[in-house]
Design a binder for these strands. Structure first.
Lengths: 384, 384
DNA sequence: CTTTGTTTTTCCAATCAGTGAAAAAAGTTT
DNA sequence: AAACTTTTTTCACTGATTGGAAAAACAAAG
């Protein structure tokens, strides 16, 4: 049974306050009067909650135009005074974002030392100088996206071969150094959370799957508006069996998605049929240039990934699939093949799924990292 | 964005009341004193909530033994005074259950008329006589499990080819006739909900997948303690592609789970290799009798279903998989093959999943139907 | 310029759920 | 019978929401 906590009056207050905050994010600017109508809370309650949010500095008040009566005092997010630092270890970038997930400032994350735990010291230094160049009190927190296995609640990086980290208490150390809240997440989850957080303001997509396809293939599953982690390791779509008697995969199974269409496999396939060994960047150019063999391989990749997506759709029936990762750089061609396979092989009900590529507009790692902190601000409280 | 409702004081009260009710279900009998300690609510609050629950008749008070002080007045569920009627259209049975999901009385559901909407009238009659033979005020509601497409919130059966129903307003009609709350669900979901509801009292399994494998193959996904319906049609695991270039399936894809191991396929396979056409019941006996060809086919079915389960585990990483449906009658042999495939082909983290057969102990359709009503009683309220 | 009407915000008394401590009740043990 | 324990009830208090009324601020009409 879920660990259940008692309900209290304080909880109701925090809940309603968050409700108001979310409403303002979604449809700002709003007056107290409008908020009261929308939430069906009493004017008093709205007034008190707003006063508090103003005092904390989360909201900002501006004058509105009268529509024949007293001028409304419009409320909106105080974007300037609420900043978030985003750290992306995949792309080795660091950025300053606002609450809407817009990047205000960006700089590369550079390390003198080799990969390993000692990077932490340098990271801390670089963060410190970024914090000091702005007002510390305007910074809400720091979100970090790390490729690897992460324990977000403890703030640990359990294992990141890419960075040479193992059981590194990232969050506690930085929090002590910097005196600001710090949150870590796996890069895939951060990406999906970024999509969810900053899309939520616009539309309601409670059920979607974010696919990261590149050198490996993973997925992040969001159902009922919640990221689903299962017992901690959900989303390993890369080792889904598509071809029961297909080629052996490193995982022990046969015909896994990854064994068929991870980037190294595609490049190998290209080399097999043409004799040319390419990097992925070169391959991408071939595709853009209309190279026949390359297009064939994109078609193949789309076909296989499409079958994988059909499997996912049949099982979870999401409203949206976002395809990110390097493979998504292959562009519209890939997307169309995916849609084609889905509409051909999907079940009647499940194939109305939208397929989108996570283009540059779609945030990326830094926005995902920022969303770790932003989500907290707008998350409805749970009983405590 | 989720439709958000305001928080109110009344909500807190209802929430805490439910909290107490759930605690009593889980660890009854409990005294008010113990409840206050467990919930960390004040004695006053617990006292008031319990008084109300007693007044409604949901709880019962008994005398406890003193441990050196005043005798505790122990509280437990008032099982006798809170009954639920369960209707299972798959097995055509009707039953009277208590809040723990135990079946107290069971009778076949018989119809004079042919399949079709007119069955409803007869159902209503039979329910009426069952209600009249007990005290109406002791009956909390009626839960109905229907094979087919169901809209539970509207109480409609959208389509059930098996029963010859289409767009039938089942719930509204019965509620009008009988004056009791009625709930419908798809049979697969009801089964899974039954597992969830009556297991919750014992252990916490928030992430599990219920597989119904028989003439068709479906799944019900429970993540974070919530049944996941996606956009309405989740769980169609039967058309998951396992063998990319395998045999054509009726759905348009190739090598679907159903195309490989639905019961008709298994029987056909048996006929192919032995020339004998069997019913499933006969096939089951062959298996029990140790018939070599039959065992081979069970092994095959387990192998294929196992791959499907690995795919599910990799994606969702559940804690438990319950295999129900006719195929589960093949017993331990099948289960062991499934476990074997999972431990061979699963990823390191995801293969600690438990696999259980939904044996007769595991409730079944009627318990699932009953759980529709019971769940409502113990569900934590949401803001309204 | 004043009056009237509208829109928005603030104020106020009332309600109601939860709190914590103390009293009361009901036992057991010495 | 007295002392101690355990459990329940009582009571005065806090604090969040409520709904209505008053006040504030403004536009348009007279």
């Amino acid at each position: 049974m879920k660990e259940l906590k008692k309900g209290s009056l304080k909880f109701v207050q925090r809940y309603n306050q968050t409700l108001i905050l979310r409403l303002i994010r979604q449809r700002s600017p709003l007056s107290r009067y409008e908020l009261a109508k929308l939430t069906k809370l009493s004017p008093t309650t709205v007034g008190n909650a707003v006063d508090e949010l103003l005092a904390i500095g989360l909201l900002r008040e501006t004058e509105g135009a009268s529509s024949g009566g007293r001028k409304p005092r419009l409320l909106e997010l105080n974007a300037k005074g609420n900043l978030v630092i985003a750290v992306g270890f995949m792309g080795r970038q660091i950025a300053l974002c606002n609450l809407q997930g817009q990047i205000l400032e960006q700089q590369p994350l550079v390390f003198q030392s080799q990969d390993g735990p000692q990077m932490l010291e340098e990271l801390s230094q670089q963060l410190k100088s970024l914090i000091d160049s702005h007002q510390r009190e305007n910074i809400l927190g720091i979100g970090i996206s790390v490729p690897g296995l992460v324990d977000p609640s403890g703030g640990l990086v359990l294992l990141s071969t890419y960075l040479g980290w193992e059981s590194l208490p990232l969050t506690p150390r930085l929090e002590e150094d910097l005196g600001l809240p710090v949150m870590v997440e796996n890069d895939g989850i951060a990406l999906a959370l970024g999509e969810k957080t900053f899309r939520e303001a616009l539309e309601k997509e409670e059920n979607f799957v974010y696919i990261h396809a590149g050198y490996g293939i993973g997925a992040t599953v969001v159902l009922g508006g919640e990221i689903q982690r299962g017992e901690g390791l959900a989303g390993e779509i890369g080792h889904m069996t598509i071809d029961w008697q297909g080629p052996q995969c490193s995982c022990g199974s046969r015909g896994c998605l990854e064994a068929l269409i991870a980037i190294p496999r595609l490049l190998a396939k290209y080399q097999q049929s043409t004799g040319k060994a390419l990097t992925f960047a070169q391959f991408k150019e071939k595709v853009a240039g209309g190279d026949e063999k390359a297009l064939e391989i994109v078609d193949f990749a789309g076909g296989v990934l499409g079958v994988g997506l059909v499997n996912v759709c049949n099982l979870l029936n999401p409203q949206l699939i976002v395809v990110g990762g390097e493979l998504s750089l292959l562009g519209e061609l890939l997307r169309q093949k995916l849609c084609q396979v889905i509409s051909l092989n999907g079940l009647p009900g499940t194939k109305d799924v939208q397929v989108q590529l996570a283009g540059p507009h779609s945030g990326g790692e830094l926005v995902g990292a920022a969303s770790l902190v932003v989500e907290k601000m707008f998350a409805l409280p749970v009983m405590s």
